[in-house]
Design a protein around this nucleic acid. Structure first.
Length: 256
DNA sequence: AGGCGACTCCACCATGCCAA
DNA sequence: TTGGCATGGTGGAGTCGCCT
């Protein structure tokens, strides 16, 4: 928006600001002015100077407003609602840990919600939703969730932008691949087990470990061989493979 | 706010011990 | 000889704190 053609009157500005101060807290009003100047294209530093605010405060406030919208215009360190009414007029909601539970206390009417603290997703959903609604503070929420303020804000922001599954459910997946018994070793376990079972040779895990280690230049223990035989579903192959092969031998190849 | 390194946590893997 | 159980190792994502 190009406002360079507009004429500004310092006298009218003073009168109007004095009038606005009857309704708005000084700090909120100064920030609204600075925010407006910033939106109109003023440099952040100059907008901050004109509004009489430290530049760092303006940076923080702008970040808040772009994230939270209009409710972020007021200074959250003070219990003042965006409309200018003090929060004390309505029941103060708080959250805290009590033993194994997380308690959300709805204030004067005595209503509370008790959530098992180890139900992490449930607790985070409730607390962060209340934080996003502006009824809980970040330190209070972070303390109840056992997180730092920074991380708490980050999760709250994610919950605004996405559903619970995207924002709060742990996506840790752990190790996905074997690191000693790879495809080569697994193939050799199957090959040795099947061949020895068919030939009627010893198929104990000790013998198989020896053979697999020799063929693949590995150092696997017999216990590891047993663990993988079971994991691959080969436990009964010693008994079932020979009769299957005998049955197949008696069936003409073109019928298979 | 964003980048980065260190640390934590999680799921899975490897293996020793030992009872059956 | 097998398989249940316990324990420690591993890779990778999440989390934290510091710095810019």
């Amino acid at each position: 928006m190009d406002c360079r053609q507009i004429e500004f009157s310092p006298e009218k500005s003073r009168t109007r600001i004095d009038k606005a101060l009857l309704v708005f807290p000084h700090k909120s009003l100064m920030f609204i002015l600075g925010y407006t100047l910033y939106l109109l294209g003023a440099k952040r530093k100059e907008a901050a100077a004109l509004a009489g605010m430290p530049e760092e405060s303006v940076k923080t406030a702008l970040r808040r407003v772009f994230r939270d919208g209009f409710p972020a215009l007021h200074d959250r360190r003070f219990s003042m609602t965006p409309s200018g009414r003090y929060a004390a007029e309505r029941p103060r909601i708080s959250v805290y840990r009590q033993g194994d539970d997380c308690i959300v206390d709805f204030g004067a009417n005595g209503n509370t919600v008790r959530l098992p603290a180890d139900h992490q997703v449930q607790v985070r959903t409730v607390v962060l939703s209340l934080l996003n609604a502006g009824v809980l503070t970040v330190p209070e929420s972070a303390s109840a969730l056992g997180l730092t303020g920074t991380h708490c804000r980050e999760l709250a922001r994610k919950l605004v932008n996405g559903d619970v599954a995207d924002a709060l459910i742990d996506k840790l997946v752990g190790q996905k691949q074997d690191y000693r018994v790879g495809p080569e070793q697994k193939a050799e376990i199957i090959r040795q087990l099947a061949a020895r079972a068919m030939a009627g040779h010893n198929t104990s895990s000790e013998i198989l470990a020896e053979q697999v280690n020799e063929q693949t230049r590995s150092k696997l223990s017999a216990r590891t061989i047993r663990w993988h035989i079971r994991n691959l579903g080969l436990t009964d192959i010693r008994k079932t493979l020979p009769p299957l092969v005998e049955a197949l031998k008696k069936t003409p190849a073109n019928r298979c």
